[in-house]
Amino acid sequence: MLDINKIDVCYGEIQVLRQVSLKIQEGQVVSLLGSNGSGKTTTVNSISGVLPLTQGTIEFMGEDITKVEPHVRVGKGLVQIPEGRCVFPSLTVKENLEMGSYLKGAKAFRRESLDLVMTLFPILRERTGQRAGTLSGGEQQMLAIARGLMSKPKLLILDEPSLGLAPILVEDIFKSVLRIKSEGVTILLVEQNVPQALGISDYAYVLEEGSVGLSGPGKDLLNNAHIKKLYLGL
């Protein structure tokens, strides 16, 4: 579904990604793991088109999207929920969700999508008229995910959805990722929360200093000695 082929990304003179390649199959949950500064967010921002590539190509659903503008990629079903959520604080929860279905294709399904996300995240139903800025961190994260779902994504990229949340909420977020998968959405999950992410992943890539260090099915990586040592502290 998504085919990233040997991409390089630079910030000015500094090269952040080196020959990164990854593949995502339709219907899977794929994790992108790695420590701080390993290039996870850079990778997903390149996939969303916010950062230009210096080399390599990105294919989505068989189409080369390397040069396609970010807002156009959303229309093709490639949606990112950014790190830090980026909800619109002075807009109400409902308005935030409506903005998720701003594009024509998604707008036609606005009512059904609203029903779907309210069922997935019942708390949002209680908060529809409230300004997003007044929600708690966990609620904002749910709103950000729900807003992304309003765009009718084929591939949903979640950049550190559990960042800064209490453990019980992290649990909730991971459960909702699985529910979204069961709705037929393919997921790329960026996480520092390695054991939990691997637990729900069909496949995982580990970035180390801007290149893919390890990759394999989630369960295999959980038992990998290198992973255990580096990320699980075992």
Binding site: V50, P70, V87, G100
Partner: peptide, 24 residues
């Protein structure tokens, strides 16, 4: 209106707006 909400959205979180498919 949707256009107006998009204007407000883009003014508060241009990045978030762009990632929602709004041509900022």
């Amino acid at each position: 209106t949707d256009l107006g909400k998009a204007i407000r959205a883009a003014s508060e979180e241009p990045r978030g707006a762009l990632l929602m498919g709004i041509n900022v």
